[in-house]
Amino acid sequence: MKQKVSIVKIGGNLIENETILDEFISNFAELEGPKVLIHGGGKLATQLAGKLSIPTQMIEGRRITDAETLKVIIMAYGGLASKTIVAKLQGKNCNAIGLSGADLNLIRSVKRPVKEHDFGFVGDVEEVNTGALTLLLENDITPVCCAITHNKNGQLFNTNADTIASEIARALSNHYETHLYYCFEKRGVLRDLKDEDSVIEQINAASYKQLLGEGIIADGMLPKLHNCFNALKENVSYVYIGSIDMISNRQTKKTTITL
């Protein structure tokens, strides 16, 4: 029987709220067994870019990462966000290490091809270094991975954190029973965005199509669900979407994704 590993992705909005971040850190540190944390930091990057007078360019909710914006991403994700999270975890006796995709050759990617738009220095994941991850986990070290990857030729890329979480879960599925959690500011996928209690507690491939047709799932939830189903198709055992409470022992609603 495979050992359980928890892959937890925390949204950038939660990182910005120190009270919520502290509560999340406590919940995450108490998770039993090996675990991996993935984070972005989009709001932090936008704030830092503003202070440096670097314009933020978005297309369809996705950031255009030019050379100057990439520098901001590296500072925000790989610096402030990463080290803040690691320090807080150490304060909870969770021995963690902050990593980008370049560290230990953890995540290799390629520049996203130009189709309708050129998103700049944005990477699409090609390979996860499973050996490096399992080495850390087997030695009770918790990887904290920011949303930066590399091409193994010296170039760093801004990369979607939801995708990184899905790819890491997929890579570890051959060695562990993988449980993938997407933590964000809602309690799960909502049927009515104005009603916090309207959590859809289970979504499968068939109901997903129906929800799409009804317009209930749209915008930023679309790529998140896409990553969820991709993970399940690649032998990830369980996928959940919800608030930070779902990784604690407290009873809470959440959305469970199944095929």
Results as ranks from 00 to 15, higher is better:
259 L>E: 02
128 V>P: 00
127 E>F: 07
188 G>M: 13
115 K>S: 13
8 V>Y: 03
67 A>F: 06
72 V>F: 04
176 Y>P: 01
178 T>E: 10
31 L>T: 04
191 R>A: 15
222 L>M: 14
168 I>A: 15
126 E>M: 12
199 V>Y: 09
164 I>F: 02
67 A>D: 11
30 E>C: 05
137 L>V: 06
134 T>P: 02
110 V>S: 14
224 K>V: 08
99 L>Q: 03
87 A>G: 14
166 S>E: 10
43 K>L: 15
166 S>M: 01
197 D>I: 06
167 E>C: 07
154 G>H: 11
178 T>M: 04
217 I>G: 00
159 T>F: 01
120 G>E: 07
146 C>I: 15
24 F>G: 04
41 G>R: 01
62 R>V: 06
97 I>Q: 02
49 A>F: 03
128 V>A: 12
127 E>C: 12
9 K>I: 07
84 T>D: 11
215 G>C: 05
167 E>H: 00
53 S>L: 06
5 V>S: 10
208 Y>N: 02
12 G>S: 05
184 F>G: 15
238 Y>F: 09
196 E>R: 02
40 G>L: 07
209 K>W: 05
150 H>S: 11
34 P>C: 14
118 D>I: 05
244 I>S: 15
43 K>I: 14
228 C>L: 12
237 S>V: 00
189 V>F: 12
11 G>D: 08
75 M>D: 07
55 P>Q: 06
145 C>K: 00
181 Y>F: 09
204 N>V: 14
168 I>Y: 09
234 E>W: 04
73 I>Q: 09
196 E>A: 14
173 S>E: 12
177 E>V: 11
71 K>N: 10
56 T>K: 02
81 A>W: 01
55 P>N: 05
55 P>K: 07
249 N>H: 05
192 D>Q: 12
231 A>E: 03
32 E>R: 08
59 I>Y: 04
191 R>K: 09
246 M>E: 03
174 N>K: 10
179 H>C: 01
256 T>W: 04
43 K>A: 15
142 T>M: 05
66 D>W: 03
177 E>I: 13
9 K>N: 03
52 L>K: 01
